[in-house]
Design a binder for these strands. Sequence first.
DNA 1: ACGATGATGAAC
DNA 2: TTCATCATCGTA
Length: 171
Amino acid sequence: MRKVLQDYFFNRSTLRVARELLGKFLVRRYGRRIIYGIITEVEAYVGPKDKASHASRGKTERTKVMFGKSGHWYVYLIYGMHNCLNIVTEKENYPAAILIRSVGDVKGPGRVCRYFKIDKSFNAKPANKKTGLWIEDRGIRINPSKIKQGKRIGVEYAGKCKDKPWRFYLG
DNA sequence: ACGATGATGAAC
DNA sequence: TTCATCATCGTA
């Protein structure tokens, strides 16, 4: 069983999608090679009021993709050297996305992008086989008791939102 | 503990 | 146009 996740999977509550992404596979076509791994850690960034979210300051050139259609990639450069990969969720004009923090043994969003050869050229592109980067359901069932939840990382500046338990990982 | 390294957004 | 900040990582 191998199914590419479509827009309708992502056009739902970000927290639900985030939980359900655990156990799915990130897949990249890189020339003739296929790079893939199981998603093991994600973080949700939800709505215009989430102070930890780039979208909390409104729609800008960078963040407009978060306000766009679900099922598209949001890739940005952080600290001048690392790319971070996010998948946009929820309906159009409601800014939300999920940061993919770890895939298999590759831990950390910067390392994920390095391992999967992901840069800003994927920004605002849809997640499907045509673009060469997509997410698959390979039929793995995750026992809910394996899903851990905790604070998001690196968002100490986010005031009331800094402690929201919107990071999900397999434990 | 800290520096690398450059895009982004807000201030001026 | 300048400036502080940053959803991190590698080295120490």
